[in-house]
Protein backbone atom coordinates (compact mmCIF):
# COMPACT_ATOMS: atom_id res chain seq x y z
CA UNK A 1 0.00 0.00 0.00
CA UNK A 2 1.14 3.48 -0.75
CA UNK A 3 2.51 5.25 2.36
CA UNK A 4 0.16 8.22 2.05
CA UNK A 5 -2.81 5.90 2.02
CA UNK A 6 -1.39 3.97 4.93
CA UNK A 7 -1.06 7.11 7.00
CA UNK A 8 -4.61 8.19 6.42
CA UNK A 9 -6.18 4.81 7.04
CA UNK A 10 -4.25 3.77 10.11
CA UNK A 11 -5.84 4.35 13.44
CA UNK A 12 -4.70 7.77 14.54
CA UNK A 13 -6.32 7.73 17.93
CA UNK A 14 -3.38 6.15 19.71
CA UNK A 15 -3.27 7.25 23.32
CA UNK A 16 -0.10 8.87 24.58
CA UNK A 17 0.99 9.04 28.16
CA UNK A 18 3.34 11.51 29.72
CA UNK A 19 5.45 10.40 32.67
CA UNK A 20 6.50 13.32 34.84
CA UNK A 21 8.65 14.16 37.81
CA UNK A 22 8.82 17.74 39.02
CA UNK A 23 10.83 19.88 41.36
CA UNK A 24 12.30 23.32 41.85
CA UNK A 25 15.67 24.86 42.61
CA UNK A 26 16.65 28.32 43.75
CA UNK A 27 18.10 30.65 41.16
CA UNK A 28 21.53 30.91 42.81
CA UNK A 29 21.95 27.11 42.73
CA UNK A 30 20.54 26.55 39.27
CA UNK A 31 23.96 26.72 37.63
CA UNK A 32 25.13 23.76 39.72
CA UNK A 33 22.21 21.66 38.56
CA UNK A 34 22.77 22.69 34.95
CA UNK A 35 26.42 21.70 35.17
CA UNK A 36 25.46 18.33 36.65
CA UNK A 37 22.85 17.79 33.93
CA UNK A 38 25.26 18.75 31.21
CA UNK A 39 27.63 16.13 32.50
CA UNK A 40 25.03 13.40 32.79
CA UNK A 41 22.97 14.01 29.69
CA UNK A 42 23.50 13.20 26.03
CA UNK A 43 24.59 16.72 25.09
CA UNK A 44 28.00 16.52 26.71
CA UNK A 45 30.05 18.11 23.96
CA UNK A 46 27.41 20.11 22.18
CA UNK A 47 25.87 23.35 23.26
CA UNK A 48 22.99 23.30 25.66
CA UNK A 49 19.68 23.72 23.87
CA UNK A 50 17.77 26.74 25.08
CA UNK A 51 14.14 27.67 24.79
CA UNK A 52 11.96 30.68 25.39
CA UNK A 53 8.28 29.85 25.14
CA UNK A 54 5.00 31.62 25.64
CA UNK A 55 2.12 29.45 26.74
CA UNK A 56 -1.51 30.49 26.76
CA UNK A 57 -4.09 28.28 28.42
CA UNK A 58 -7.69 28.18 27.24
CA UNK A 59 -10.41 26.50 29.23
CA UNK A 60 -13.74 25.06 28.20
CA UNK A 61 -16.44 24.79 30.84
CA UNK A 62 -18.55 21.68 30.43
CA UNK A 63 -21.74 21.70 32.48
CA UNK A 64 -21.90 18.71 34.80
CA UNK A 65 -18.31 17.67 34.12
CA UNK A 66 -14.81 18.88 34.82
CA UNK A 67 -13.33 21.67 32.74
CA UNK A 68 -10.98 21.00 29.84
CA UNK A 69 -7.88 23.06 29.23
CA UNK A 70 -5.93 23.26 26.03
CA UNK A 71 -2.48 24.81 25.99
CA UNK A 72 -1.19 26.81 23.06
CA UNK A 73 2.57 27.19 23.06
CA UNK A 74 5.01 28.84 20.73
CA UNK A 75 8.66 29.77 20.80
CA UNK A 76 9.33 33.48 21.04
CA UNK A 77 12.59 33.12 19.13
CA UNK A 78 10.54 31.81 16.19
CA UNK A 79 8.82 35.18 15.76
CA UNK A 80 7.30 36.55 13.59
CA UNK A 81 6.03 33.24 12.17
CA UNK A 82 6.16 30.71 14.95
CA UNK A 83 4.80 27.17 14.84
CA UNK A 84 1.95 26.88 17.29
CA UNK A 85 1.79 23.80 19.41
CA UNK A 86 -1.55 22.70 20.83
CA UNK A 87 -1.50 20.41 23.83
CA UNK A 88 -4.01 18.62 25.97
CA UNK A 89 -2.72 17.39 29.30
CA UNK A 90 -5.04 15.54 31.63
CA UNK A 91 -4.65 15.66 35.37
CA UNK A 92 -2.38 12.95 36.71
CA UNK A 93 -3.82 9.50 37.21
CA UNK A 94 -4.30 8.55 40.83
CA UNK A 95 -2.31 5.38 40.80
CA UNK A 96 -0.53 4.86 44.11
CA UNK A 97 1.64 2.03 42.76
CA UNK A 98 3.33 4.31 40.20
CA UNK A 99 6.35 6.18 41.46
CA UNK A 100 5.99 8.94 38.83
CA UNK A 101 2.99 11.00 37.73
CA UNK A 102 1.31 9.57 34.66
CA UNK A 103 -1.04 11.72 32.63
CA UNK A 104 -2.83 11.42 29.35
CA UNK A 105 -1.41 13.57 26.65
CA UNK A 106 -2.39 14.69 23.17
CA UNK A 107 -0.57 17.19 21.02
CA UNK A 108 -0.40 18.56 17.51
CA UNK A 109 1.05 21.49 15.63
CA UNK A 110 -1.47 24.00 14.29
CA UNK A 111 -1.65 27.18 12.26
CA UNK A 112 -1.65 30.61 13.86
CA UNK A 113 -5.41 31.11 13.91
CA UNK A 114 -5.69 28.52 16.70
CA UNK A 115 -6.61 31.09 19.35
CA UNK A 116 -9.60 32.50 17.50
CA UNK A 117 -10.55 28.96 16.55
CA UNK A 118 -10.63 27.90 20.20
CA UNK A 119 -12.74 30.93 21.04
CA UNK A 120 -15.24 29.90 18.36
CA UNK A 121 -15.43 26.52 20.05
CA UNK A 122 -16.35 28.16 23.33
CA UNK A 123 -12.95 28.10 25.00
CA UNK A 124 -12.17 31.02 27.29
CA UNK A 125 -8.80 32.58 27.98
CA UNK A 126 -7.58 31.28 31.30
CA UNK A 127 -4.00 32.30 31.97
CA UNK A 128 -0.64 32.62 30.30
CA UNK A 129 3.01 32.48 31.22
CA UNK A 130 6.52 32.49 29.83
CA UNK A 131 9.05 29.75 30.29
CA UNK A 132 12.68 30.40 29.52
CA UNK A 133 15.50 28.04 30.17
CA UNK A 134 17.57 25.06 29.14
CA UNK A 135 16.59 21.68 27.89
CA UNK A 136 18.57 18.48 28.40
CA UNK A 137 18.00 15.06 26.91
CA UNK A 138 18.95 11.68 28.24
CA UNK A 139 17.76 8.90 25.98
CA UNK A 140 14.00 9.21 25.81
CA UNK A 141 13.92 11.54 28.79
CA UNK A 142 13.68 15.29 28.59
CA UNK A 143 14.71 17.52 31.46
CA UNK A 144 13.85 21.21 31.41
CA UNK A 145 15.16 23.83 33.81
CA UNK A 146 13.02 26.89 33.30
CA UNK A 147 12.35 30.27 34.77
CA UNK A 148 8.61 30.87 34.83
CA UNK A 149 7.40 34.43 34.52
CA UNK A 150 4.03 36.03 34.11
CA UNK A 151 2.83 39.10 32.27
CA UNK A 152 2.60 42.29 34.29
CA UNK A 153 -0.43 43.29 32.34
CA UNK A 154 -2.27 41.58 29.58
CA UNK A 155 -1.73 43.56 26.43
CA UNK A 156 -2.27 41.82 23.15
CA UNK A 157 -1.20 44.73 21.00
CA UNK A 158 2.25 44.87 22.49
CA UNK A 159 4.36 42.68 20.27
CA UNK A 160 7.36 42.76 22.54
CA UNK A 161 6.38 41.08 25.77
CA UNK A 162 9.99 40.78 26.90
CA UNK A 163 9.90 44.02 28.84
CA UNK A 164 6.79 43.33 30.82
CA UNK A 165 7.71 39.95 32.24
CA UNK A 166 7.78 39.39 35.95
CA UNK A 167 9.31 36.22 37.43
CA UNK A 168 6.83 34.34 39.58
CA UNK A 169 9.36 33.11 42.14
CA UNK A 170 13.06 33.25 42.88
CA UNK A 171 13.49 29.67 41.77
CA UNK A 172 13.55 27.59 38.61
CA UNK A 173 11.01 24.99 37.67
CA UNK A 174 12.54 21.62 36.85
CA UNK A 175 10.59 18.96 35.03
CA UNK A 176 11.66 15.54 33.85
CA UNK A 177 9.27 14.06 31.33
CA UNK A 178 8.95 11.19 28.93
CA UNK A 179 6.27 10.45 26.37
CA UNK A 180 5.33 6.80 26.18
CA UNK A 181 2.47 4.88 24.71
CA UNK A 182 1.23 2.70 27.54
CA UNK A 183 1.82 1.90 31.17
CA UNK A 184 5.38 0.81 31.40
CA UNK A 185 7.05 0.23 34.76
CA UNK A 186 10.52 0.33 33.22
CA UNK A 187 9.99 3.96 32.28
CA UNK A 188 9.22 4.92 35.86
CA UNK A 189 12.29 3.06 37.13
CA UNK A 190 14.51 4.68 34.50
CA UNK A 191 13.31 8.12 35.54
CA UNK A 192 13.60 7.41 39.26
CA UNK A 193 17.17 6.17 38.84
CA UNK A 194 18.15 9.28 36.96
CA UNK A 195 16.43 11.56 39.49
CA UNK A 196 18.41 9.79 42.21
CA UNK A 197 21.65 10.93 40.54
CA UNK A 198 20.61 14.57 40.83
CA UNK A 199 20.29 14.40 44.59
CA UNK A 200 21.08 16.23 46.83
CA UNK A 201 20.95 19.22 44.44
CA UNK A 202 17.32 18.64 43.70
CA UNK A 203 14.71 16.12 44.64
CA UNK A 204 12.37 15.43 41.75
CA UNK A 205 9.05 14.13 42.98
CA UNK A 206 5.72 12.88 41.84
CA UNK A 207 3.51 15.87 42.53
CA UNK A 208 -0.08 15.32 43.54
CA UNK A 209 -1.89 18.21 41.91
CA UNK A 210 -5.07 17.60 43.88
CA UNK A 211 -3.35 18.31 47.18
Amino acid sequence: MDPAQLLITQNRAFPSLEYVLQGSIQDDSAHLLKARLQGLCDNITGEVEQFDDHEIVHTLRIPGASNVSLRVRYALDDMPNPIYHLRYVASAELDKSQSVSVRQFHDCCVTKNIQSFLQELGFMYDHEFFAKGDIFRKGRMKITVAKISSLLERNRSDMNPMQIRRPLTASCFVEMSLIGSMHDDKVADEMKTFAEQLKPLISLEKIDQKR
Binding site: L7, I8, R12, A13, F14, L60, I62, G64, A65, S66, V68, L70, L86, Y88, Q104, H106, D107, C108, C109, V110, T111, N113, I114, S116, F117, E120
Partner: peptide, 24 residues
Protein backbone atom coordinates in the same frame (compact mmCIF):
# COMPACT_ATOMS: atom_id res chain seq x y z
CA UNK B 1 -17.56 31.58 11.97
CA UNK B 2 -15.31 34.22 10.54
CA UNK B 3 -12.38 32.11 11.51
CA UNK B 4 -10.23 30.74 8.73
CA UNK B 5 -9.60 27.06 8.35
CA UNK B 6 -7.28 25.60 10.94
CA UNK B 7 -4.56 23.38 9.56
CA UNK B 8 -3.19 20.91 12.08
CA UNK B 9 -1.24 17.69 12.33
CA UNK B 10 -3.34 14.62 11.77
CA UNK B 11 -3.22 13.95 15.51
CA UNK B 12 -5.79 16.75 15.80
CA UNK B 13 -8.52 14.14 15.28
CA UNK B 14 -7.31 12.33 18.41
CA UNK B 15 -7.63 15.60 20.29
CA UNK B 16 -11.20 16.08 19.04
CA UNK B 17 -12.01 12.51 20.04
CA UNK B 18 -10.65 13.34 23.48
CA UNK B 19 -13.05 16.27 23.68
CA UNK B 20 -15.75 13.84 22.63
CA UNK B 21 -14.99 11.46 25.48
CA UNK B 22 -15.01 14.44 27.85
CA UNK B 23 -18.58 15.07 26.68
CA UNK B 24 -17.89 18.45 25.08
Amino acid sequence: SNCQMLVADNTFIALMNKLKTLRA
